[in-house]
Amino acid sequence: MTSRAKILEKVLSNQPEAQPLPADSFTTFPAADPVQAFATVLTTIGGTFIPVSDYQSVQKYILEHFAGQRIVSTLPELAEVSEQGWENQDPHSYANVDLAVISAHFGVAENAALWITEDLMHQRAIPFICQQLAVVVNKKEIVQTMHDAYLKIGIADYGFGSFIAGPSKTADIEQSLVLGAHGPKGMTVFVMD
């Protein structure tokens, strides 16, 4: 008998009587202004909230803050300020990327998380290995709660996807919060009108 068969048999003979799944609906208490709520939470968790009206403003912000650094982006609108052809390199070489700019499908007001799938990352490692991460999201794409988030994701297929909320952090040393554990030391979210 294989281990698989042994485990499955033991589970079957020991699992309790069928219990139904609960209803999905929740009485939630939506924020009056989800974008404002998103901004507040993002700031609390160490991120930077930048409202923008177009990609030109994004570009301007990047030039002001990251000029002369290694910048990669998945956004064709930012080609002028970012390195080209990075996607074809070995992901280990991204260790010295100073800034990666990518986009998110949507953001979540209750926790400032942004849903980003592999197709928006181009390389899975990039949002994690870069020193600073910037994410562009449409203002209309800020949902209230994680329930709304999964409604929006639905049955979408992806190889990899992540909710990213703020910069990498740790409080493992005496509960002192430190930004920049292994991943990005900072996270900027451009919320586009």
Binding site: A113, E118, Y158, G159, F160, S162, I164, A171
Partner: peptide, 17 residues
């Protein structure tokens, strides 16, 4: 766990790259 609204990364691994 810690009072955070969510962890920084909630990564959904579906397929190998």
């Amino acid at each position: 766990a810690t009072g955070q609204p969510i962890t920084t990364y909630s990564s959904h691994f579906k397929k190998p790259r």
